[in-house]
Amino acid sequence: MNRDRRQLVLMLAPYLAGLALLVLLPATATMTMAFTHTDLIATSEFIGLDNFAELARDPAVHAAVGNSLSYLAYSVPLRLVLAVGLALLLHRRTRGAGTARAAVLLPGAVPELAYGLMWLWLLNPLQGPVNQLLLLGGENGRTMFGTLPPQWLTDPEDARAGIVLMSLFTIGETFVIVLTARLALPPEAYEIAELEGARAGQVLRRVTLPLLAPVLAVLVLRDTVASLQASFIPALVVTNGGPPPYATTYLSLVIYQEAFEYLRYGYAAAVAALTLILTVMAVLIQWRLLRRWAYHGLAGMGTHRLWG
């Protein structure tokens, strides 16, 4: 082992130790727990694949897989589109841009639980500001388009939409990353397009998006990984998994309920394992789809390649 390598290992050691102690060890323990019956009261008992067999027939898990994937399918692209849109809108130094940027960041700074409680109030079907707003200009309890206002907490579709809606305001981090990436793009690329007479749409499609592609791809993957967990607090606080039976029961909520409400830690670990498998699958699929697109982009600008 040469000197550089030794230094590298030395510098990485604290991180690796933390990773092993705080992530790998508990993760291994959890995966082991998935094959046991564990209630944390009595000693746990090895039951082989029983938890997984039950999981395969559990209607709550079936619903949760569907809900989690649908959340992922809506929330991830919408969040990204919104964050990219706002970042491109606010990357110039104009009057009010600073305030607007702060406004985009702010919801992410609210503690998750408080954020959930706030939405519980916002989405109140009768007194909530969201529906009050939708009812403006309508009459007889209908919106101005003549439709009934969404029943956020009692209609399954509306409730799921509500959870996605909640996720659309916590894009601060994604926004900042896109904003920074956009600011780092060379002005010459835009000047080339300008000289060729490119319209705004062409600039977006042929310059901005391809150049941001590696960053966007990483953000998509990151958001995918996060989204299978991000739905947890809103589902717990705002809808508590309902409307019944399982309209907003996400995998993360099943894990929570099984472990902490029913003390079925082994079964919860099995659901966690399923969540892990689903996440890995989602990431692999996206990676295959995005790899080619994201390969270039910043690579030629002297920045490090994000994709090997």
């Binding site: 508990p26 990984v225 967990q229 993360s252 472990a259 830690y265 919860a268 892990l276 996440t279």
Partner: peptide
């Protein structure tokens, strides 16, 4: 995923 799993064990331990 992994974090959920870890979180679970961690929560218990903590």
């Amino acid at each position: 995923m992994k974090r959920t799993a870890a979180l679970l064990s961690l929560l218990a331990t903590l």
